[in-house]
């Protein structure tokens, strides 16, 4: 028996290098490295004038596993669960070894940290509503995301949406979690097992939200659960979000749809409050003298501000 993976050296692609597939003969022009994880590294490449993301690894078995997951996602019609898969192939490197790779859609965007820093924590709620829905669809497909962490998420533009970019940890429900990161791991915080069930993802989701408030993370201490409760109470100022987080770490929510509904209720409630306030203001202003010039200029200013906001930030 040979253990090839142990002896095979890691692979590093250089900028400008061309990766040619052994089976399908496609060419990929390496632009830059996007990141690396437990299994292989992801590169931004250009293929037929299109930007794509290419993941390459020395562990051909793990690549095959991930491709299987991505393929099963493609079967979900009308839903973009993760990036779409474009090609699977082997690359014969100059050192003589074969390295497996797969090519997926390149999702451009910014990290959740950067996005929240620029736009404010209020955005979390609306991002999470859509994301919880995606998770729900994934769970209904019989999978659990597994390695849900801030590094695996990206905020795409048009539409502004939280999306996952690395599906390496996705595990069939009922099995043991394939890949995890301590800070986001339910078992590490002694809040449950490492078995793949929807609750595992929801716990990790709570940790993702916490990570937004604590970019450098924190350690579990002697009483992990208590540590979590303290950290939540200290930093999270949006009341329903705080309530949700406490529910999530207590495993009292085990369906992503519940998370969505919870946040949606809050969102609608908050909106209707705002609308009421606006309505009151309007009622007040109508009592005052009608002033056409002020009216027109304010509409123009508001329009201008909106236009600027859209061009610069969306």
């Amino acid at each position: 028996m040979i253990t090839q993976t142990s002896k095979k050296p890691d692979i590093h692609l250089r900028k400008g290098q061309i990766v040619k597939g052994k089976w399908h003969r496609n060419h990929y022009h390496v632009v830059k490295k996007l990141g690396s994880g437990a299994i292989g590294a992801v590169y931004l490449c250009v293929h037929e004038n299109r930007q794509v993301a290419l993941k390459i690894s020395k562990q051909s078995a793990s690549v095959s596993s991930e491709v299987n997951v991505l393929k099963s996602f493609q079967a979900v019609q009308g839903y973009h669960l993760g990036p779409s898969l474009m090609d699977v192939d082997d690359y014969q490197a100059q050192n003589g070894f074969n390295y497996s790779f797969y090519v997926m859609e390149y999702i451009s965007g910014e990290s959740l940290h950067d996005f929240i820093r620029r736009n404010g924590h209020e955005w979390l709620v609306s991002l999470l509503i859509k994301f919880a829905n995606d998770l729900h669809v994934l769970h209904q497909q019989g999978y659990v995301f597994g390695d849900l962490k801030i590094e695996n998420l990206i905020v795409s533009r048009k539409p502004v949406q939280l999306r996952w970019v690395d599906v390496g940890g996705t595990t069939l429900q009922g099995r043991s979690i394939k890949e995890y990161t301590e800070f986001y791991d339910r078992a590490y915080w002694q809040c449950g097992s490492r078995k793949a069930d929807p609750g595992y993802d929801l716990f990790a989701l709570a940790m993702v939200i916490l990570r937004v408030y604590y970019p450098n993370g924190f350690t579990r201490g002697n009483n992990p659960k208590k540590t979590l409760q303290q950290k939540i109470n200290r930093a999270v100022t949006i009341e329903p979000l705080k309530k949700l987080l406490l529910m999530l770490i207590n495993n009292s929510v085990n369906d992503a749809e519940q998370v969505k509904d919870f946040l949606l209720t809050y969102f609608i409630h908050q909106k209707s409050k705002k609308n009421k306030r606006r309505y009151n203001q309007q009622a007040k202003s109508s009592h005052e003298a009608f002033h056409p010039f002020l009216e027109v200029s304010s509409i123009l200013t508001i329009g201008g501000v909106c236009y600027l906001y859209v061009t610069f930030f969306m």
Partner: peptide, 18 residues
């Protein structure tokens, strides 16, 4: 060996290994 199979077949074999 597995590594020499075309990607599609390798994927099927990998499902068994998993």
């Amino acid at each position: 060996t597995m590594e020499e199979l075309p990607p599609d077949q390798r994927g099927e074999v990998m499902e068994v290994v998993d």
